[in-house]
Design a protein around this nucleic acid. Structure first.
Lengths: 348, 348
DNA sequence: CTTTAGCACTCCGGGGAGAAGAGTGCTAAC
DNA sequence: GTTAGCACTCTTCTCCCCGGAGTGCTAAAG
């Protein structure tokens, strides 16, 4: 059953007010804010809204607070989609003026920036759309015991490390190995790499094979790591400012969850850029009393990142959604500019 | 004036008890624990200890709690230096079985492990004993617009990155550049690198010089970053379990401090492996009501790391000190094994 | 001179009682 | 359908009282 326009208006006022104050909203306050109708009328409407499940009453003689269903309607239809002010956009872009160091450091910084900007805890991650593969290898001898392996992978990222060799390898073998690596171990999955490693075991001297297997295992690790990033969380301290988490136990519980459960945090849907989960809509028990807003952004062509914000169901959805998508856009732009190879000339 | 043996005994009981319970300790409880003397005698002694500044009274009719001075004496003379149990040592070593990925990721993990093991917030960092310098450069051409720069620096760490060239560089220039880099830009400070960059400006073609300056600026950044690490904090949520931080505002304040002020956290003295700072002994205002235990560990020969633990003045110094030094030893060993070049043969 | 028992005193903390206030639900009138 | 009025409910705040824990002091005993 569709709500009347007035009921929606009332619901909106209740949600807006409750988001602001965290206090149950009374009929009188609503009447004043709406104008034209008396508090008694509002009371009748409120009773209906409770009946229909959009509002709740903490106890008989208190005002009303929104139910998850109420928030859902609010988010879907009622809330005024905020546009970011120029000032805010400016601030977001400033906070993203990060130097492009390593991806995870950068994400950590971005996460902190998001959290500080929305005043709720935030989490952030990047994940490969598909598995990464190596594109090119290089070996640089250092001394008879050490060499440097350099690997370039999809997305033009480069990784390198010093490798200590367990057995001395004939210097002449180096070009052979590099050739072998580049011809047989690029553009394939990690599993395939291991398979091929087995198959070439016979063809090269054992010392070289040992080194090769070291290289492959390093490559596998680096690819794994680059493609499948850990989720980092930031700003869980913000919870303590919220009245619903003044209780130290509750705060501790949620903070522990955020710190530990890197896996089970909500991710955005593949098709849509933003997703809002209200209270019990979260499958995870620890989030049943909280809401999550999560957005996605692009990292080059092959990777996709997510940023999420966790807050009370009373979260300021309009503002958070606006700022979060501002950040997502900013990050997409940032990565588009810095990480991609310069196909079209960027002059700067 | 030196305290009598009995006064010290009493002080020890008070501190032990208060550390355990966070409640002021009364004369009767002490009398029971000590045996042989009556509570009235204890009361006389307690009055003396208050007079001398080792104990404090929250209010006239409460038990006594230790003052910072009392804790100090406790830490210096009274506390029973704990030895780690085999079980604990085992646990520490297990939690440090980290794969050697990037240093900062590893530190983050170690920090979390420390925090989880002592149940207080922890912070951790690594810093160069002296400024790092580059040891060797290598350039790998990719295509006419891109190349990979590889830099090996002190401590056998290797960094690499894809560089996009603003101007095409004659392939013949590459060996020249590498030679120049290795002969003129290794084993010197970042400042010196910039100075030399200026001085060679005339000697090579402008395109090559542009690339060279890109390389130098990348090198400078990487050296800077490798030598001067950010402090990471972990487990500040542990605060919320402590009675002295049940107050959400206090907890928030300290957590904000830990999250933001990477600079002003205590560092260990150069000569001693462990340092304990009690309450007002901390120069930083935000830590005046807390105690800090901080230990150092070695990363190879050139770097030194620190791990610190922040807690209430009522912190369990004996346990924390023991476990922290356990971790410090573990980390020293870990880095000794993994990061150093294999001078002596490690077979594994 | 130290130790102990005894006792009056202080202060915190918990547990009502009561009042204030906010808000509701219902009824009756418009 | 809307409104005014009113009795009722429930929370929250304050005040107050009381019990308990612990002290400081005194005077006596070792």
């Amino acid at each position: 059953m569709e709500l009347t326009e007035r009921k929606k208006q009332i619901l909106k006022v209740v949600v807006d007010d409750y988001i602001r104050t965290a206090e149950p909203v009374g009929s009188k306050a609503i009447a004043v804010r709406m104008g034209g109708v008396s508090s008694a009328t509002i009371r009748n409407e409120l009773a209906d809204l409770v009946e229909l499940g959009y509002l709740e009453q903490p106890h008989t003689s208190a005002g009303r607070i929104p139910s998850p269903k109420g928030y859902r309607l609010y988010v879907n239809e009622l809330m005024e989609r905020q546009k970011l002010s120029l000032d805010e956009t400016e601030k977001i872009n400033q906070s993203l003026h990060l130097k492009m160091e390593e991806l995870d450091r950068l994400l950590g910084q971005a996460g902190r920036a998001v959290s500080a900007f929305v005043n709720y805890p935030a989490y952030i991650a990047a994940a490969g759309k598909k598995a990464l593969a190596a594109r090119r290898f290089e070996l640089l001898p250092v001394d008879e015991r050490n060499c440097i392996v350099v690997m370039m992978m999809d997305g033009d990222r480069v990784k390198s490390q010093l490798l200590r060799m367990q057995l001395k390898v004939d210097p002449e073998q180096f070009p052979v190995l590099v050739n072998l690596l580049n011809s047989h171990f690029t553009k394939i999955s990690v599993e395939e790499m291991n398979r091929r490693l087995m198959s070439v075991a016979e063809q090269i001297p054992p010392q070289a094979f040992l080194l090769l297997s070291q290289i492959v295992s390093y490559a596998a690790e680096a690819l794994e790591e680059a493609g499948h990033r850990e989720i980092v969380t930031a700003g869980s301290k913000e919870l303590l400012k919220l009245p619903e988490f003044r209780n130290a136990d509750k705060a501790h519980e949620l903070m522990s969850f955020l710190a530990d459960s890197k896996e089970s945090l909500p991710v955005p849907d593949a098709d849509s850029p933003m997703k809002i989960l209200i209270g019990p809509e979260n499958v995870n028990d620890a989030l049943k009393d909280t809401s999550v807003v999560v957005a996605s952004y692009d990292i080059g062509d092959d990777m996709r990142g997510l940023i999420g914000v966790v807050g009370p169901t009373r979260m300021d959805y309009a503002t958070v959604a606006a700022r979060l998508s501002g950040f997502a856009d900013g990050l997409t732009r940032l990565f588009g500019k810095q990480e991609l190879p310069p196909k079209e000339d960027t002059h700067r």
